[in-house]
């Protein structure tokens, strides 16, 4: 079953997010050897501060078995900020109806316990793909750009869910290569994955039923969950992502643009920008750059 956790319901599901951050640490840190930061066994980065949406797959006991993270491409996201190298120096796509998905992973260890086979892994993977495609589609999103490694790329192809194209090129990120793939959120694609996996039921569980399942499990085991205190502490100690642009930054930027301009046209363009900033009295002190 699939649950979507975002800023609106995360207060109720702190325990699930904590499990998810631990799964990400095991997969991206231990197994894949990505260059990710792990604190207290949780993999959390600056984009987790930006209120992304998490699509999370749960097993029958309510344990996290898969997850993926979604952000809008109109605002800060991984391809615009840290995965730019994948785009060969080109600016990223930016569209109201395009979401970016990152940190796609499945807990193969848990799924293969108890004599289960790879069939269980495939089913959980497909359920997560269906859940994320349907969630995006329901939100009016037409396409997803996803940062994946060649293994996930093969999994997508084998599940009748092959990317329709790629942007930029495959690059080495740490120990593994990564690439940016495009998927449409059409009914045709969703139906193909459903047919491949033999899933025809509604994959989403309601917030209420998931909460009830978790509470019942905790009661039976006579445990009190910490409710995700751990990841909240890690997140709150992280530095604010640098968003607002300060006047000094603009001045530095303009100086660099003028000094490093490869040709006369670029230099003239940089000078024009300074003129606008000075003329509009946005940054009068910058006249020293043009004089």
């Amino acid at each position: 079953m699939i649950i979507v956790i975002d800023a609106l319901n995360k207060d109720r599901f702190g325990d699930l997010l904590d499990e998810m951050f631990q799964l990400r640490a095991r997969v991206f840190g231990d197994r894949l050897g990505w260059e990710v930061e792990i604190v207290n066994g949780r993999e959390i980065d600056q984009f987790d501060r930006l209120d992304p949406a998490y699509v999370i797959g749960l097993d029958n006991e309510g344990h996290v078995v898969s997850c993926v993270r979604a952000l809008q491409t109109t605002g800060p996201h991984m391809l615009s900020d840290v995965f730019q190298v994948l785009l060969d120096g080109e600016p990223p796509l930016r569209s109201a109806t395009l979401w970016e998905s990152t940190r796609f992973c499945v807990d193969t260890q848990r799924l293969c316990r108890d004599g289960n086979t790879m069939k269980a892994v495939s089913l959980a993977t497909c359920e997560l793909m269906i859940g994320s495609l349907e969630y995006a589609r329901r939100s009016g999103i037409s396409d997803i750009i996803t940062v994946i490694d060649p293994v996930v790329n093969r999994v997508l192809k084998r599940s009748d869910n092959a990317p329709y194209d790629y942007v930029g090129s495959t690059k080495q990120m740490g120990k593994v290569p990564a690439m940016a793939a495009l998927l449409d959120c059409t009914e045709e694609r969703i139906n193909r994955v459903r047919a491949f996996a033999g899933i025809d039921h509604d994959v989403f569980a309601s917030d209420e039923s998931v909460r009830a399942l978790l509470d019942a499990r905790n009661a039976a085991m006579d445990t009190v969950t910490a409710g995700g205190v751990e990841w909240m502490a890690i997140l709150s100690e992280m530095e604010e992502p640098e968003l607002p642009v300060l006047p000094e930054d603009i001045q530095d930027y303009c100086r660099a643009q003028i000094e490093n301009a490869p040709n006369e046209a670029e230099r003239a363009a940089a000078l024009r920008l300074v003129e606008v900033l000075v003329r509009q009295r946005i940054h009068p002190a910058m006249h020293q750059l043009v004089s």
Binding site: A96, T97, G140, L277, Q280, I282
Partner: peptide, 27 residues
């Protein structure tokens, strides 16, 4: 459900335009 895709684009259009209403942001 029917209007959401177009409405998403319109929302970003309005937002971008409003955000560009001062010269620095336009630059």
């Amino acid at each position: 459900a029917h209007i959401l895709p177009d409405l998403q684009s319109v929302a970003v259009h309005v937002h971008d335009t409003v955000m560009r209403s001062d010269a620095l942001s336009r630059a």
